[in-house]
């Protein structure tokens, strides 16, 4: 978690969100401190407009792609919330959970 926080610090969310040279997905991954390979790939796709070239974007059906992502997300959710440690951690978000246990202060 510590590493994640540090990575995030590198990029200012404000700047990333309103930087129009990045597409939204890139902006998010940039902010999350993930690599910049994605950005370069996308550029390659864009400035080539050969007549006979089949663009990558056209070949993958966005609806199918969305379905696949949703399916993966579903699996992830089911798995994540079967684990006892994750469920334990969530207790503090409910009024029934003890706050003292993980040292969170109440307001």
């Amino acid at each position: 978690a510590q590493r994640l926080v540090q990575a995030r610090r590198r990029v200012d969310l404000q700047r990333v969100v309103y930087d129009l040279s990045l597409n939204p997905e890139e902006a998010i991954s940039r902010w999350n401190g993930e690599g910049e390979m994605g950005a370069e790939d996308a550029e390659e796709d864009n400035d080539d407009d050969d007549f006979f070239r089949v663009t990558k974007k056209g070949s993958t059906d966005p609806t199918l792609e969305r379905k696949r992502v949703a399916e993966e997300y579903k699996k992830h959710i089911l798995e994540k919330w079967s684990k006892e440690e994750n469920l334990q951690r969530l207790q503090s978000k409910f009024i029934t959970g003890s706050l003292l246990q993980d040292g969170e202060a109440d307001t």
Partner: peptide, 15 residues
């Protein structure tokens, strides 16, 4: 039912 409940947990965790 299970999937929906677990999605809710996910949203609660996001806060």
């Amino acid at each position: 039912g299970e999937l929906c409940a677990k999605q809710l947990l996910q949203v609660i965790e996001m806060g």
